[in-house]
């Protein structure tokens, strides 16, 4: 099903405007089958717009957007079945309870009914299965949306802010789930504001700012690339902090502290993704 070169998603020179307003500009990305790809960017950067284009809900102005090697607007029924989508513009039936919402979609797609139970248990909503959707909290609702995306065991997942509004523990549980899905061989395309999450979870990330990809690659690699200072930070037992150069003299100095038993900790001075993002855009993510 996937592209010959193993790409689940590929865009090239993608542009989109809402009226006069340019929202996406020359976006070129690749997501391999079996990896977690994180799209990071501040509010209004165009993340949701990109997902809408990739899921065929919106037609781009120019450039290509391919899913499984095919234009995203021209996917067949079978290919749609292989895609799980979680986003705000993908509604739930408010007057039905959690399990019935899922049951409806298993009926529609001819998926075994038990899958509904499986995914609810996975996202920890089984105890709330009889609760009407209109009475769910934001986090519970998010988890139900996630459960629905998992329902058909899709090979590609589009998740728009899957952990927004969740407490750290639930978010961590969701991370485990996503890693499990990747283990299964699924590709995951997610958006987030949470840099720490992206750094931990994603195999590749792209930083989107005002519709442009300003940086793209493995999280560690990006952080290393923007490590201009190349310094070591030492913390001594006597409470002093030292910053040493990355060169021979710095190393020798550090060895002295180490030999004398004065060195408590060494920190690398690599910036985290957030710092890189600030540097690239002149502002934070939130």
């Amino acid at each position: 099903m996937e592209n010959r070169n193993g790409l689940a998603v590929q865009t090239a020179g993608l542009q989109h405007c809402y009226g006069q307003k340019r929202v996406l500009e020359d976006v070129s990305l690749q997501v391999k089958q079996g990896e977690i790809f994180g799209l990071l960017g501040p509010s209004g950067a165009g993340k949701t717009t990109l997902i809408k284009i990739l899921t065929g809900q919106l037609k781009q102005e120019s450039g290509t957007a391919e899913v499984f090697g095919k234009p995203s607007g021209k996917l067949t029924g079978q290919e749609h079945r292989d895609i799980g989508i979680m986003m705000d513009s993908f509604g739930l039936y408010e007057r039905m309870n959690c399990i019935d919402n899922l049951k409806f979609f298993t009926m529609l797609s001819g998926i075994p009914k038990e899958r509904g139970k499986d995914v609810l248990e996975k996202v920890g909503l089984w105890p709330a299965r009889k609760t009407l959707v209109s009475r769910l909290s934001k986090g519970m609702r998010n988890r139900l949306l996630l459960a629905r995306a998992f329902l058909g065991e899709p090979r590609l997942l589009f998740l728009d802010e899957p952990t927004s509004g969740l407490d750290p523990r639930t978010a961590a549980e969701i991370h485990e789930l996503l890693l499990g899905e990747r283990e299964r061989g699924a590709a995951i395309f997610l958006t987030t504001h949470n840099m720490a999450e992206a750094g931990k979870l994603c195999d590749h990330v792209a930083l989107l700012n005002e519709g442009r990809v300003v940086e793209c690659g493995e999280p560690d690699e990006i952080c290393r690339k923007y490590n201009h200072q190349k310094t070591l930070m030492l913390h001594l037992y006597n409470g002093r902090d030292l910053i040493l150069g990355h060169d021979r003299s710095g190393l020798e100095e550090m060895m002295q502290y180490l030999e004398r038993g004065e060195l408590e900790t060494i920190h690398s001075s690599e910036p985290d993704l957030e710092t890189v993002f600030m540097e690239l855009t002149g502002r934070g993510l939130n």
Binding site: G77, H80, F90
Partner: peptide, 8 residues
């Protein structure tokens, strides 16, 4: 939209 994208 969800329905139409589920091939209905």
């Amino acid at each position: 939209r969800v329905l139409l994208m589920s091939n209905v």
